[in-house]
Design a protein around this nucleic acid. Structure first.
Lengths: 216, 216
DNA sequence: TGTGAAGTGTCAGTCGCTGTCACTAGCCTG
DNA sequence: CAGGCTAGTGACAGCGACTGACACTTCACA
């Protein structure tokens, strides 16, 4: 299924392989230290000592200490975007968003296992939700992701995002709900993928009822 | 209208007045420097030099450099919460939220003018929206505000937030839409209150249509 | 095999932020 | 109103995140 196109990735070369190895080592060491003793309690020096490189090298791979915490999140987000792209245009925007989210959770394991165990990602995600400095960055990143998704949705529907506010509004509403989900999940005891998938479904089911004029 | 209750605020005392004066001076100097030359380009030393106090003193008034940028935002948020509390229970949750937001914009001028000119606040707000580090913090603060509002809404409707997800979901959806508004306003040229009020109304009008199953 | 460039370590320095301690100036009591 | 108490401040030392400059090693490619 892969390895069929010889052109773009023929032989990485020793230099490239070395680079990837140090980056991966830094990433893994950082995440382990973060989940073990907390983000703020972990210094960059500790991370680089664990991998035995200089501090300067860390900052050549990651723009700042936060970035390393979101490296895996990057993968998860592109995984979701891919799932959304895969939805047929025949589905309405909300339907497509909902199915894409659930699909993404279902297939997360395979998509991630090459780089980092899903388990470690889940613990990192909880760390992000519970560390104020990381949560702030996470929310800003989510806002950027929202914009990408809004463009995608507008494209599906053949609309211009700047002329019609509905794509952005719909995505904002759904994302808001998803954030509630993430927070509730982070506070709950069950850190499994199954658990967050279940909560996602439940919260999305409530979006219609919640926006009704009367609740009684 | 004031000065009728002698008990809680009889005479601030010289010490108290001095404190308030340095705090106000720091706040004003900081905001002016921020909007003039940018947040990251302004060092804490520059701020304290402008007021002629030591750097240490700055950090006795503000926990960190960000906090001073959000001091006015704090006022605006409590102003909005007050507006929401003032809405009669007879209004449904969405109706109340909508009217509270618009009310808050309409009366912002009076509520703020004592402390800082509205104009300076508006420029600060645009600075926050356009400075990544500040935007991140702003979004986290907004999330905290959302939680407060969700509790308020649940209270109005006589519901338990943890049993019924609708308060959080509704507030999340509306807040998401409001964030889109804020961003669009920040990018647009018109930095007036009237402008953001108008955009708020327009975006909130779209929340129903945007969540319809089909857009065509 | 030698030359250029990519990747790294070292060092010095800036900035945000904190703990400590001595000192000054309002306040409060006798 | 004198003298002690304490809140508020400044000066200083120090940590951790981050950056720029430069020299050195090591791979790549002719």
């Amino acid at each position: 299924m892969t390895d069929e196109r010889p052109a773009p990735v023929p032989a990485p070369g020793l230099r490239e392989r070395k680079k990837r190895r140090t980056r991966d080592a830094l990433l893994r060491a950082a995440l382990l230290l973060f989940v073990a003793q907390g983000y703020e309690q972990t210094t960059v020096d500790e991370i680089t000592d664990a991998v035995d490189v200089s501090q300067r090298t860390f900052f050549r791979y990651f723009a700042n200490k936060e970035e390393v915490a979101f490296a895996v999140q990057d993968l998860v987000e592109s995984h979701f975007v891919a799932a959304l792209r895969a939805r047929p245009v025949s589905e309405g925007p909300l339907e497509a968003l909902r199915r894409a989210v659930l699909d993404a959770w279902d297939t997360l394991d395979e998509a991630l296992s090459e780089v980092v165990p899903v388990d470690l990602y889940m613990r990192t995600y909880q760390l992000i939700e519970s560390t104020p400095a990381l949560l702030a960055v996470h929310l800003r990143r989510s806002a950027e992701l929202e914009e990408r998704i809004a463009l995608l949705i507008a494209d599906r529907e053949g609309l211009d995002v700047d002329a019609d506010p509905r794509p952005r509004v719909a995505v904002a509403a759904v994302s808001g709900v998803m954030r509630v989900t993430g927070r509730l999940w982070g506070q709950g005891g069950d850190a499994s993928v199954a658990s967050i998938r279940r909560m996602t479904e439940a919260c999305l089911d409530q979006i219609g009822p919640a926006l009704a004029a009367r609740w009684h």
